[in-house]
């Protein structure tokens, strides 16, 4: 097989057909990269104390847990209504948190955009500040806000707001930077001030983009809001972590099911809304 391939390539070469050459030059770096990745994996697994002796029995126990989860059930109707209320709270946290973040993110986004604030130093520091705050996770913010306003959903909404201000501001500044310059030049050419150029040249362009980004964040924050309850910041996560702690697996699976359905519904609504916004913009 390889012999015939060799004769074939020799024949083709004799007819001056350019064949791709494979060798250390072309594939070496790729192989090294893959070897390093795999090597790091196998080095890391024992360092983390992961072994088959722990993994296999764990899988068995996991199987048992999954069996215990069936069928999902809230057990009593009163529990169901409590969960429903918590779910509403989760949605409220996600919505309120994202909208608050958006209100603060819009001015920050304009500040961090190169075509609005031409000052290089301001731009640099604005971007670094956004990156720094962005690297603190929502859950950490939740813990901090719990210390400030106490346990409950309000802390959760504040946590989502503070974690997303910078992420949203960064996205918005990028949207502003990629906006078309021509409307701005048009406004300036017809004698408009700098403020007018931003108001009539940039804002109409970026507003639909902002709206769809905010919608996307509401969608993803619905997911985040389900877990901030784990540290006590309100919503359905409070019940979820509680039920896992007391090993009420049927209720756990019911809660997960509720979250899945809610997320699917929010996804659908946000998709429709984003499509209408994109269609108009």
């Amino acid at each position: 097989m390889s012999e015939s391939a060799a004769t074939l390539s020799a024949m083709l070469r004799s007819r001056n057909v350019e064949l791709p050459r494979y060798g250390w030059r072309t594939h070496g770096p790729g192989f090294v990269a893959i070897a390093v990745l795999i090597g790091l994996f196998f080095l890391g697994v024992p360092v983390l104390g992961i072994s088959f002796e722990r993994f296999i029995p764990g899988l068995w126990r996991l199987g048992d847990i999954v069996m215990l989860m069936m069928p999902p059930s809230p057990e009593t109707w009163s529990r169901f209504f409590i969960y429903l209320e918590a779910l509403g709270q989760t949605l409220a946290i996600a919505f309120l948190g994202t909208m608050t973040a958006a209100v603060f993110a819009i001015p920050l986004g304009f500040l961090a955009a190169r075509n609005i604030v031409a000052n290089r130093i301001v731009h640099f520091f604005a971007r670094r500040l956004l990156d720094t705050v962005r690297s603190v996770d929502t859950l950490i913010w939740a813990l901090i806000w719990i210390n400030v306003v106490g346990l409950g959903p309000f802390a959760g909404a504040l946590a989502i707001a503070s974690a997303d201000i910078c992420a949203l501001a960064k996205l918005m500044s990028e949207a502003i930077e990629t906006a078309d310059r021509r409307p701005v030049e048009g406004v300036t050419a017809s004698g408009g001030s700098r403020a007018a150029a931003v108001r009539f040249g940039i804002v109409p362009q970026v507003l639909p983009v902002f709206a769809s980004q905010v919608l996307y964040y509401i969608e993803s924050n619905t997911r985040s809001a389900t877990i901030i309850g784990i540290v006590g910041a309100g919503g359905i996560g409070v019940h979820l972590s509680e039920m896992i702690r007391v090993l009420e697996w049927q209720q756990v699976s019911f809660l997960i099911l509720m979250v899945l359905v809610t997320v699917a519904i929010i996804d659908q609504i946000s998709r429709v809304l984003r499509k209408t916004i994109a269609g108009r913009g």
């Binding site: 709270q89 949605l91 946290i93 909404a157 309100g234």
Partner: peptide, 9 residues
């Protein structure tokens, strides 16, 4: 509505 739900004070 959300503010009411999230017990904003």
């Amino acid at each position: 509505l959300a503010a009411l739900g999230a017990e904003v004070e």
